[in-house]
Computed example of a mutant assay.
Amino acid sequence: MNLLGWTYRYVGPPDLRTLVRPEAEGRRILLVSDFDDWVSGLAAVELAEPFTFVIDSAGVLRLAPRRSEHVVCAGGGPILGAGEMSFRREPGQWVVAEVSNQSTGYCPDISSWQAVVEALDAAGIEHPSGFTHEVVFRRCPACSQLNIVREGDFVCVFCDGELPREWNVDGSRS
């Protein structure tokens, strides 16, 4: 753990790492004006969909079109948070309408919300008080398969083994 929170490594399919290119990284949003500049060049249909986001290891929000892979958005590096985020326009400002930690490439714990809050606050972007959709990821100790826990049922969908209550997707989390 660093001062900004837990760091998550990419745990998704290895072949997606080959898509990482410097020119494909997510747009860094340090200030709300960065977001304004970026969305002014997007089509209305792109604004209607949620964006792929990561909070990079420096605590900066990066955004990419929804169909982008999180590992590409992050430039292949470790992250503090990841998921999907949608925005709505309110008088004089953009605000986060919905935000999740849905990233099967990094599988961030719901505790990553703090890093998301800090990045959005630093950029001056209003946001909800928590993830509007939380995804609970766990790796099965018995069969090693990645699971999404649904309705609080901590049972592996692959082997019926018991899933841990604590996040355990990547044993080397720092």
Rank of each mutant, 00 (worst) to 15 (best):
A64H: 00
V71Q: 01
E69P: 00
F87A: 03
G75S: 09
G75P: 02
R88N: 06
P78L: 13
C73G: 02
P78I: 13
G83W: 12
P78Y: 05
A82H: 03
G77A: 12
A58N: 09
I79H: 07
L80M: 04
H70N: 03
L80I: 01
L80D: 00
G59Y: 11
G77S: 10
G59N: 10
V60R: 07
A74T: 04
C73E: 06
P78M: 14
V60S: 05
R89N: 14
P78Q: 14
R66H: 14
G92Q: 11
E90G: 12
R89C: 14
L61A: 10
V72Y: 01
D56V: 08
P91R: 05
A58S: 11
V71L: 03
G76V: 01
V54R: 12
A82K: 06
R67F: 09
R89V: 15
H70L: 09
G75I: 03
E84V: 09
I55E: 02
D56H: 07
V71W: 00
L61H: 07
D56W: 08
V71T: 05
E69Y: 06
A64E: 08
G59C: 12
C73L: 00
E90H: 10
V72K: 03
E69M: 05
S86R: 05
L63W: 02
Q93M: 15
V60P: 00
E90Q: 15
P91H: 08
H70F: 09
S86C: 08
P78S: 15
I55A: 02
R66Q: 15
A74E: 13
I55V: 12
R66C: 14
E90Y: 10
G76K: 01
G81R: 04
R67V: 07
V72T: 04
G75Q: 12
A64M: 10
G75W: 11
A82S: 10
P65R: 11
G92K: 08
M85R: 11
V71G: 04
G83C: 09
R88A: 10
Q93H: 15
S86T: 07
G77Y: 08
R62A: 13
V72L: 03
V72C: 01
G83N: 08
G59S: 11
R88D: 08
W94C: 10
V72F: 02
Q93G: 13
G81S: 06
W94T: 11
S68D: 00
I55M: 04
G76Y: 03
R67S: 09
G81V: 00
V72R: 05
G76E: 10
H70T: 03
P65M: 08
M85V: 11
W94L: 14
G77Q: 12
Q93A: 15
L80Q: 03
W94A: 13
A64W: 01
G59H: 11
V54M: 14
F53L: 14
V71Y: 00
V60M: 07
P78K: 12
Q93V: 13
G76R: 00
R88H: 09
L80P: 00
R62G: 11
S68I: 02
R89A: 15
H70E: 03
